[in-house]
Computed example of a mutant assay.
Amino acid sequence: MDVKVFDTHVRTRDGRYLHFDVLTHGGDVERATGFARRFLADRGLQDADVEQSECLFCHSESAPPEVAAAITQQGYFIIPLQGC
């Protein structure tokens, strides 16, 4: 499966910095941003907790089987990079 990678940077109101990649099958930035919000909400961060957020298309790549399976099941896969 070919996936789109969205490089995501978030600064919270309390000063934390989070960096993670959102991998999806489609290239829709609005959808990827929604998945990023869901990931943050799962960690107790709501929109009101976020000071700045950026989710930009970075590149496409071939997904390993476990990533492809997660995307098939839930529509996305997150790779935590910093502060997650």
Score class of each variant (00 low, 15 high):
residue 19 H to C: 06
residue 60 S to V: 13
residue 16 R to E: 02
residue 16 R to G: 09
residue 74 Q to F: 00
residue 34 G to L: 08
residue 1 M to K: 13
residue 21 D to L: 01
residue 15 G to D: 03
residue 25 H to C: 08
residue 3 V to Y: 02
residue 21 D to K: 04
residue 28 D to I: 00
residue 37 R to H: 00
residue 52 Q to T: 04
residue 73 Q to W: 12
residue 84 C to P: 03
residue 81 L to N: 03
residue 27 G to R: 05
residue 72 T to D: 14
residue 1 M to I: 08
residue 70 A to K: 02
residue 16 R to D: 03
residue 61 E to V: 02
residue 30 E to S: 08
residue 40 L to Q: 12
residue 10 V to T: 04
residue 57 F to D: 06
residue 46 Q to M: 06
residue 63 A to G: 12
residue 54 E to K: 14
residue 55 C to A: 14
residue 79 I to S: 12
residue 75 G to P: 05
residue 67 V to C: 11
residue 73 Q to C: 10
residue 49 D to F: 09
residue 39 F to S: 09
residue 2 D to R: 02
residue 19 H to Y: 12
residue 74 Q to P: 01
residue 6 F to M: 06
residue 47 D to F: 07
residue 51 E to L: 14
residue 21 D to T: 00
residue 44 G to N: 06
residue 18 L to N: 10
residue 33 T to F: 02
residue 8 T to S: 06
residue 63 A to E: 15
residue 9 H to T: 06
residue 2 D to G: 07
residue 62 S to F: 10
residue 52 Q to H: 15
residue 30 E to C: 07
residue 72 T to M: 08
residue 34 G to R: 05
residue 34 G to F: 01
residue 60 S to C: 11
residue 1 M to A: 14
residue 64 P to W: 15
residue 22 V to H: 04
residue 41 A to G: 14
residue 9 H to W: 09
residue 49 D to E: 11
residue 15 G to N: 10
residue 22 V to L: 11
residue 45 L to N: 13
residue 41 A to C: 08
residue 41 A to S: 11
residue 12 T to A: 00
residue 45 L to D: 11
residue 26 G to Y: 02
residue 74 Q to L: 07
residue 45 L to R: 12
residue 56 L to Y: 11
residue 33 T to D: 01
residue 28 D to Y: 00
residue 57 F to R: 12
residue 66 E to S: 07
residue 76 Y to C: 13
residue 58 C to F: 12
residue 6 F to C: 09
residue 53 S to K: 15
residue 7 D to V: 05
residue 48 A to P: 07
residue 24 T to M: 03
residue 10 V to N: 02
residue 13 R to W: 05
residue 27 G to M: 05
residue 2 D to K: 06
residue 4 K to N: 12
residue 45 L to P: 13
residue 63 A to T: 06
residue 53 S to E: 12
residue 69 A to D: 09
residue 37 R to E: 02
residue 83 G to L: 11
residue 47 D to M: 11
residue 53 S to D: 10
residue 32 A to G: 01
residue 17 Y to A: 10
residue 44 G to P: 05
residue 71 I to F: 06
residue 17 Y to C: 07
residue 59 H to S: 07
residue 74 Q to A: 05
residue 14 D to I: 09
residue 69 A to H: 04
residue 49 D to W: 10
residue 50 V to R: 13
residue 12 T to G: 02
residue 29 V to H: 04
residue 11 R to I: 05
residue 7 D to M: 11
residue 76 Y to L: 13
residue 25 H to P: 03
residue 14 D to R: 15
residue 61 E to I: 04
residue 77 F to A: 01
residue 40 L to R: 13
residue 31 R to G: 06
residue 7 D to Y: 06
residue 56 L to E: 15
residue 28 D to C: 00
residue 53 S to L: 14
residue 63 A to I: 03
residue 23 L to S: 08
residue 7 D to N: 13
residue 74 Q to G: 04
residue 67 V to M: 12
residue 82 Q to A: 13
residue 46 Q to F: 10
residue 26 G to L: 08
